[in-house]
């Protein structure tokens, strides 16, 4: 071997040694750093679709809780993941977070079934999970669900409808149309139940007649066609729809029939989407129901924090978030109303 070659092989040897030393030192530093991690709380927030304003509010609520805890001197940080409504992407995000040893996960599932395998991994790693807005099918995979009580919200909607009918002075029995959502979905089932809880007793008292009950699959165009056909055969005093899209479709049909929505026929929706709020302000829709995504996020983080620090057990495995009836009087202010932090029920 030439002297040149000897020098070169020597250099290579040094380089290799240097790399090994750096790698070992780095590994040790990382190990030390990650073993120190549990002193701070790291919460993962998994959102089904941040492009939807509703879930953006959920994120804002969670952020508000983190800021509040930080101001109290708690060492907490939160990482937000957006699944863009893709269940497989969300599963990957959750699995990655489990590998990074997050302290707790606040999950807004894209799908109540598809999410389960990844949540099982969190469970076996001993990471507590809170579900928000949508629950998972297997309720043992999370310690608490924080979401809307749709039955109660629908009862509020139906009560608002009756209130408006009473105030209108229309003669009883009132002819009511119910527009239902996609059969089998939790929202459709619960809201239908809530409507009937209020309306059925009035039907047996002879004050209300349900002249038609149709499935319009939460869709505006279907509700338009169905309501048009209903108006061809029936005299209608009021419409109650399981979401705003259907209520707005019904309003189009009412206008098309030469009637005035809000006056000839009273319409109540659900969800408080911007389009519906505009209709409420215009007097075309009497009321809609607003949920509290902000509180879902806010309470979600607080629940996770209490679970991690004090092994908190919630009073029930479902903490319902409030629903607010939006009418002309609070159409401008309800957003603030539902975006104000409130104490978590049963908090230690």
């Amino acid at each position: 071997m030439s002297p040149m070659g000897k020098a070169l092989s020597k250099t290579i040897t040094y380089v290799i040694i240097a790399i090994v030393v750096i790698a070992v030192a780095g590994g040790l530093a990382y190990w030390y750093y990650s073993s120190q991690r549990p002193s701070g709380i790291k919460v993962g927030l998994f959102i089904s679709n941040l492009g939807n304003p509703y879930f953006a509010l959920l994120r804002d609520g969670a952020q508000a809780a983190v800021t509040e805890l930080k101001n109290k001197g708690v060492n907490i940080e939160m990482v937000v993941y957006d699944a863009k409504d893709d269940p497989s992407l969300q599963s990957n995000q959750i699995e990655t977070a489990v590998g990074q040893r997050f302290s707790a996960l606040v999950v807004n599932p894209t799908d109540i079934q598809a999410i389960q395998p990844s949540l099982s991994k969190a469970k076996s790693a001993g990471i507590p999970v809170v579900t928000t807005d949508r629950d998972v099918a297997d309720k043992t995979l999370r310690f608490v669900f924080i979401g809307t009580d749709n039955v109660k919200g629908a009862e509020q909607a139906a009560n608002a409808l009756i209130q408006a009918l009473t105030a209108s002075g229309k003669p009883t029995p009132w002819n009511v149309v119910i527009l239902n959502g996609i059969p089998g979905t939790t929202a459709a089932i619960d809201r239908n139940k809530g409507f009937h809880n209020v309306l059925d007793p009035l039907v047996s008292q002879g004050k209300v007649v349900i002249v038609a009950e149709e499935v319009a699959n939460f869709r505006r165009d279907e509700a338009l066609s169905k309501m048009e056909s209903i108006l061809a055969a029936k005299k209608v005093d009021a419409v109650i729809a399981a979401n705003d899209e259907m209520a707005l479709g019904a309003i189009q049909a009412i206008k098309g029939a030469g009637l005035t929505p809000g006056k000839d026929i009273i319409v109540v929706g659900y969800d408080a989407i911007p389009d519906a709020i505009a209709a409420v302000k215009a007097g075309e829709m009497y009321a809609t129901i607003a949920q509290s995504p902000f509180l879902q996020g806010y309470w979600g983080v607080l629940a996770a924090y209490y679970r991690v620090t004090q092994n908190w057990n919630p009073p029930a495995d479902w903490i319902p978030t409030p629903t607010v009836v939006v009418t002309k009087t609070n159409a401008d202010t309800f957003q603030q109303e539902v975006s104000t932090p409130k104490p978590l029920p049963g908090a230690p």
Binding site: R219, R220, D221, L224
Partner: peptide, 15 residues
């Protein structure tokens, strides 16, 4: 035509 009937551009039109 659907825009005219709904007085809105509804994203699930024609699904």
């Amino acid at each position: 035509m659907m825009n005219a009937r709904l007085q809105a551009a509804y994203p699930w039109t024609g699904y």
